[in-house]
């Protein structure tokens, strides 16, 4: 068995994950990065994307959006704005959010914050992707 480290994931709503893990893959602002035990100390911001946790029981997937990861000796802390397990994702809401974001992006209204709409779009697409992936696996 691979060496494990302590992984802690917190969101403003709750403590999302707290336990031992063999590996964690996160989408950082520079792309997907995997962290295993004894990784060098690192601090890096996160983007919106898939989060994979590998522990004794297997691989768990979740969505993760924004925040940062702080890796140090035998421990990794992920502070994120939101994290959800696939079964918690509300697909209808995500699709709705995607459509709303699409509409906002297309409209020429100067009041609409393009950056924000783009981010919202990413978040919705990410949720839909993770959810669909899980359903296909079943």
């Amino acid at each position: 068995m691979a060496q494990t480290f302590h992984l802690e994931i917190v969101t403003p709503e709750r403590s999302f994950y707290n336990g031992e893990a063999e590996m964690v893959v996160v989408r950082t602002v520079q792309g997907d990065v995997a962290f295993m035990a004894d990784h060098m100390w690192t601090v890096t911001p996160l983007a919106t994307g898939l989060l994979k946790i590998k522990d004794k029981k297997g691989i768990k997937k979740a969505t993760c959006s924004g925040g940062f990861i702080h890796v140090k000796e035998g421990k990794a802390i992920i502070v994120t704005n939101s994290a959800e397990w696939p079964e918690e994702i509300d697909l209808d809401r995500a699709i709705e959010a995607k459509e709303r974001a699409e509409k906002n992006l297309k409209s020429s209204d100067s009041n609409i914050n393009v950056e924000r709409a783009k981010v919202a779009m990413f978040r919705a697409l990410n949720r839909i992707r993770v959810k669909e992936e899980l359903m296909n696996n079943k």
Partner: peptide, 12 residues
Amino acid sequence: EYISYEPSPSAL
């Protein structure tokens, strides 16, 4: 201990 700040400390 050396810490890596990605992408760069000030950006971080």
